[in-house]
Each structure stands twice: as C-alpha cells, then as structure tokens.
Design a protein around this nucleic acid. Structure first.
Lengths: 287, 287
DNA sequence: GTCGAACTCCTTATGGCGTAAGGTATTATC
DNA sequence: GATAATACCTTACGCCATAAGGAGTTCGAC
C-alpha cells in the first residue's frame, strides 16, 4: 500500500553487501547459527516472487524458514536492509558481460547511417536481459531505484552498460545521462508488464477483458473524452485498429502471451530504438 | 517501507476521478456533509508533501481536518483510492499546453542537422515542467506508474506530449515507445533528486558529505573496487575530477543547490538530448 | 569439570496501521 | 411527529516492525 522511502541504515546494508562473508572467525561460544544471511535473503526472494512485496514480512520470511520472526534480527538489522540485500542478490542472475564494446572494435563501421553495430547489439542484449530479469522478479522494480546504496551485483550490471557505452565512444558526461535514460526505460516498461501480470493473476481478469471494461466505463463517465483529449484518442484509435501492428493479425486465442505484453514488447523495442538512435547521434558528436 | 501494488477498486477510483461532482442531487435527508472529497484529497497532498508517503495515513489526514479517521470513509472508499485521487490531482498543476507542435509549424527547419525546432523546445518544456512538478511533490514518483487508471489531469499531461509528438510527425507505434521512454526518464531522474533531498532533510547530512562517507566506506569494504569495476571507476573518476564540468568550477559554499542536484540537472539535460536526438532520427525516418 | 561469557532463538509487549461493525446525532421527506 | 437516510464517532480486530528480556546452547579459561 505505501511506499519504500528511506532504505534502512546504509552503512549496515553496505557492510552486508560488500563484506565477503563477514569475518571468518575460527570459533566462538554460543550455539552454532542454524541460519545465514544468505538463506534469509533467498527465503525473502522466494516470498516476494510468490506473494509480491506486499506479502513480504518478517513473519512470512521466518515462517518459510521454520523460525520466529525475531530470529531473523540476529542476522539482519531489519526489514529495510533485508530488502536491500534481496534487491542486490537478484541482480546476480544477470549473465556475465559478453566481450563486446571494446575500444578496438573489430566490426567495421558503415559508410553513412550504418553504425559501428557492436555496441547497439550489446546494449540491446543488456536491456533485454535486464528486462527479463525484472519480469522474473517483478517486485524488484517496485523497490525505489533512487538508492545510491549499490551492491556488488547491481554494480556489475552497471559495469556492463558503462563498458559498452565507453566502447561506443561516449564521453563521461553523455554516458551518465545515457545510462540513466536506459535504466529508467527498462525499469519502467518492465514495471508496466509486471503489474499487468500481477493484476491479471490476482483478479483472474485478462488484460484484454480488463481494458475492455475500463474503456467502457470511461466512455460512460467521460463521453466527451475524444473532444477533450483528441490526440490521445487518435493514438488509442491508431494503435487499437492496428496500422499493420500485430493487434489484428495475430492468431486469436493465444492467451499464453496476453495482449498487453505483446504491445509492451513492441513499445520496448521501439523505445529502445529511439534511445539507440539518440546514442548514435551522441557517438557521432563525440567521435 | 513496502510498496504500492494493486491500487484499490479501479472502478471506484475512476468514478471519483471522472465524475464531475458526483450526482448533483437536490437534497437528501441526513446531516449536511462538512467535508468533501476535494478537501480530503488536498489534506492528503499536504500531509504527503510534508511527511512523505510513509507519514500518510488515514489518521494523519483526518487529524489535519479535525475529524476521526473513519469519517473519511464516508467520502473515499479507502486509502488506495485516496492515493489515486491525490496522484491525479497534483497533475493539475501542470501548465496548459502551449500551442506548439501543430502540424502547420511556423518555425522554419534548419539546413543540415537543424531540426524543425518547435517540437524539441516543446518536449523540453514539457519535461522540465513535469520534472519540477515531481520535485514539488516528491511522493508522486513513488506511486507506481504501471497503473492504467488514468485520471483526467494525468491524461491532460499525456495529451500534451502526444500532441507535440504527433506534430513532430511520428507515427502511432513510434509515438508510444517515445512517450514511454520520456515519461520514465523524467520520473526516474526526478526520483533520484527527490530522494536525495529527502535523505538530506531527514539525516541533516548534505549530499556531498554523504557521498564522501559512502565512498570512504566503500573503499574500505571493497578495496579492489577499481579492479572489479574498471569502467565504473573510470566514470566516477572522470565525473568527479571534472572534465570541464561544473563540479570544480562552481563557487564553493553554494549550498542552496547541492552537489547532487547540479549533477542531476546535467544528467537530465544530457539524457533528454539523447532522447530528442533519437526522436529526431525517428522523425526523419517517418517523414 | 566447572564457570562465565557469548551467542541463538524464543515469548511477550508496544505502538502503529487499514478498516469492519455498530452506535448516535442530525436533517430531510412524508 | 414518524421514518429513513446520512455524517460522524468509538471500539475492536488482525495485521505489521521491532524493542525488551528470558531460556537454552556452546565455547574458552581455569
């Protein structure tokens, strides 16, 4: 219901994120720990994957581990820090960087509009991988991104992109803005799809039915919609009617990939192309 | 702490958002209402502006109005719907569309790289206005955007952008992806600044101090950072050292506009330029 | 072998939250 | 005046994070 705001003690989170395995002390009095930060983080991820972030509580996580909620506080300072750890951990699923984008590019540049090519593919692959990661763990995109508490795994994801863009020839200033734009674009589109899936699963209403009901309701409540918002109406009309999009031509009954997801996949591709073209212009400007 | 997921009953929210003033029934038995949906929404916005979304509760909103929390339920179905209304309402602060982007553009196109120009300025103005709106109400960017329950005011903001881009000559498909990319970019950058301000206000530590402490901690916890993440290290070095950026040249002691905000302003400008260049490529492709 | 310290894990309690249930006072129509 | 509808209230329930403190376990030191 509410929103994440101030992710707990940053110092504690950073220590847990970056310290290899705490201190490897030989032995110490007291009972051996039967849990571990890792196990708790994994349990938290499992809960969030199954139940969304709303279902994530210290109790539910502990329950999955057969403990009381307070047992977790021995390992983890609190819920906010646990979420930090979960967030970083899922980024470990990102495949390792392919060796693209090195400055000694072996792909020849085209003569006119033809780009170097290598970095475009690399950025596209990066974006698609991140997108699918987000869709595997939809709760991740609901964790506030304005969080300079970067963990090693998220940092590695950044490292990939920064490397690709440096390889493409961008300077530091342009690179920063580009990274920001790309990141937020992937996050935003993934969030839309993720929440659509969530809503469909929770209510049992498919995207198409939902949208149909919604626009019926809207045209009843705001019959003058097309006059008040002519451009939006035009856009809705041209998209729905299918100006050669897949909307009409696709085989009906393909519910495995619902309507909105197909549309978002197109939106993703188109938006990414716009971004890549913009980067290309910057590359030409820098080079 | 947690995250917004499934914004209450969409139908009820839509009715409240789009119905002009409910039903203007002549009269009815029972005491006169002393509150109104509008007053509640405004109180909610005031609370969220002052206290962040974490401080927003039915109790706090009611307190500001001198009522009990349950009194609000007479006017508003629940907290989720109230948040929907608050979200849409703040978008009413967006200034009305300037008459730019019409297909009969009166600004002459430049000879070579020079664009039509009109739509670039219009998009920039739109983005900057939305950015500053988000910074006036930082909690807005924490409300999940993957929410097709558009209210009239947010719809108007969209209408502006769609109009501008249609005027620039984009087709519907490209337009969708572009709108998405622009929206998420503005949201994301605003979120970063908003949360930095929040953190600074909450902890009393300035951006610069905070970052200094953070990187000290990081270099202690991960002394091999530069080897593990060479590209990120390079980016950090080139940004901080100031390759002709403002970082060094700016007058010291200008705490009114903190370090991170100046940097984010640059990032915003650069990222927007990349996006505009990408759009321009699409315009050329379409035209 | 025994003691004390360190450690894990538990139960309990506190103060928050959204909101369901039901009571009371007010104000219209009949 | 009776009746019904309405606004607002108090109370209560079941969640939540987590503070406080107790019980049991395991080590090093003697």
């Amino acid at each position: 219901m509410s929103i994440f705001a101030g992710q707990g003690d940053a110092g504690r989170s950073m220590a847990l994120l970056w310290a290899p395995r705490a201190q490897a002390t030989g032995s110490s009095p007291g009972p051996k720990p039967t849990l571990s930060v890792e196990a708790i983080v994994e349990a938290g991820i499992a809960v969030a994957d199954a139940d969304t972030l709303a279902g994530l509580s210290m109790r539910t996580v502990a329950q999955r581990l057969g403990r009381s909620s307070m047992a977790l506080y021995t390992y983890v300072p609190g819920k906010a820090e646990l979420l930090d750890l979960m967030y970083d951990r899922v980024h470990a699923e990102m495949p390792p960087a392919r060796n693209l984008g090195g400055s000694g590019g072996d792909l020849g540049g085209g003569p006119d509009g033809g780009p170097d090519g290598g970095w475009r593919e690399a950025v596209t692959a990066w974006a698609r991988e991140l997108w699918s990661l987000y869709l595997r763990h939809p709760w991740v995109v609901q964790v506030s991104y304005a969080r300079p508490v970067l963990g090693p795994n998220e940092q590695a994801v950044m490292e990939q992109l920064v490397g690709i863009l440096y390889g493409a020839g961008l300077d530091a200033g342009t690179l920063r803005g580009t990274v920001t734009a790309l990141f937020h674009f992937v996050r935003g589109t993934a969030q839309t799809v993720a929440e659509a899936r969530l809503a469909a699963a929770a209510t049992g209403v498919s995207d198409q039915e939902w949208w149909a009901g919604r626009s019926a309701l809207l045209s009843e409540l705001a019959p003058d919609f097309a006059e008040r918002f002519p451009m939006s109406a035009r856009l809705a009309g041209e998209t729905a009617a299918g100006h050669g999009d897949g909307a009409v031509q696709d085989p009906p009954g393909d519910d495995a990939v619902p309507y909105l997801e197909r549309q978002m996949d197109r939106t993703f591709t188109v938006g990414l192309t716009v971004l890549l073209d913009g980067i290309e212009a910057a590359v030409r400007g820098c080079g």
